[in-house]
């Protein structure tokens, strides 16, 4: 039995004159559509690549020297004890801010997840802190924390607690900025998790009530596994964001007192811009980038898994 030839026709065998080419605009269209994305990519990649390149030179604004020095800036950074302290502050800030926002946000979301007028009103007011620029919010908090005219200390005193020196002393500086971060972004965490809770089918929770499960039993075995994807969304946004937090700390103390709040971001800014030693500050920014890159990769992967698991796929 003869097999039919189903291979593609030999294009080279077709005479040039018979090949009909689509009009120019049609051929260009895919490239034109991709062009804006390409421009944006260049806009992001160019400074990034330049940043990496400058970090391999001794470049300073006062002495513009672009000789290649390899990883010398990185070596110096790692040898500096300030770097390890900076790592600690950066992580401490990110973990405590994200952790508190998760716990508070989840509590608020659980409380608001019911049909009542109060819940509806509160849901709207929750968004207010997010509508204020972080710098403005911080300046307002700074005034409230002011030792002589601020309102916070009298409030503490009225319930029998001693006055605090807030961000003015190293002991409470981190607490003070984390407090502002929590105030600003707990509503975000609460709203994401509330949206999650609202998206759940009612059936399983009714079944749990009939099955005689206590609040905590249902929470542990049903609510939490189903809410994990939403919790991870909050973590992805808030942890990434607080790792690179700049505005609240800068507006509050510019990294002080001393170097108490010198996170990667603050150190990079101070060294590169204020001290004008660009190449020495860049490694901090790049290490921060690498940390955020890998942590976010890992979190997003975990998020995908959690989503499948919450739906019941193993």
């Amino acid at each position: 039995m003869a097999t039919r030839d189903i291979s593609a026709p030999d294009l080279a065998a077709i005479p040039e004159s018979e090949i009909v080419r689509p009009p120019l605009m049609v051929r260009l269209r895919p490239y034109l559509i991709a062009l804006p994305a390409l421009l944006v990519l260049i806009g992001i990649l160019y400074p990034f690549v330049m940043g990496v390149a400058y970090s391999l030179t001794p470049y300073a604004f006062t002495r513009p020297n672009t000789d290649f020095v390899g990883l010398r800036n990185y070596m110096r950074m790692v040898e500096d004890s300030d770097f390890w302290y900076s790592t600690f502050v950066t992580l401490a800030y990110a973990f405590s801010a994200t952790g508190v926002q998760l716990a508070l946000g989840l509590t608020v979301a659980m409380l608001l997840n019911r049909e009542s007028r109060v819940a509806k009103i509160l849901q709207v007011t929750l968004i207010f802190p997010m509508m204020i620029a972080p710098v403005i919010a911080t300046l307002i908090w700074k005034m409230m924390m002011q030792p002589s005219v601020g309102i916070l200390n009298p409030m503490l005193n009225s319930i029998g607690l001693p006055s605090l020196e807030w961000a003015a002393v190293p002991e409470t500086a981190l607490f003070s900025v984390v407090l502002i971060d929590v105030w600003m972004f707990t509503p975000f965490a609460a709203l994401i998790m509330l949206a999650g809770l609202r998206s759940f089918p009612q059936g399983p929770f009714e079944a749990a009530r009939v099955d005689g499960a206590s609040f905590w039993f249902t929470f542990r075995n049903l609510t939490l596994p189903m809410l994990t994807p939403f919790i991870l969304i909050v973590i992805i946004f808030r942890f990434m964001d607080s790792l690179k937090m700049f505005d609240i700390i800068f507006a509050m103390t510019e990294g002080g007192p001393g170097n108490t709040l010198m996170t990667y971001q603050l150190t990079a800014y101070r060294t590169s811009i204020q001290f004008q030693r660009l190449a020495q500050g860049l490694p901090y920014a790049i290490v921060l980038y690498i940390v955020i890159y890998f942590v976010s990769q890992w979190l997003v992967k975990w998020w995908g898994q959690a989503q499948r698991r919450a739906a019941g796929y193993s």
Binding site: P201, P204, A207, N221, L222, P225, M226, A310, A311, G312
Partner: peptide, 9 residues
């Protein structure tokens, strides 16, 4: 009727 099973379990 809608089963109301616990999806993650």
């Amino acid at each position: 009727e809608s089963y109301a099973l616990y999806p993650p379990l």
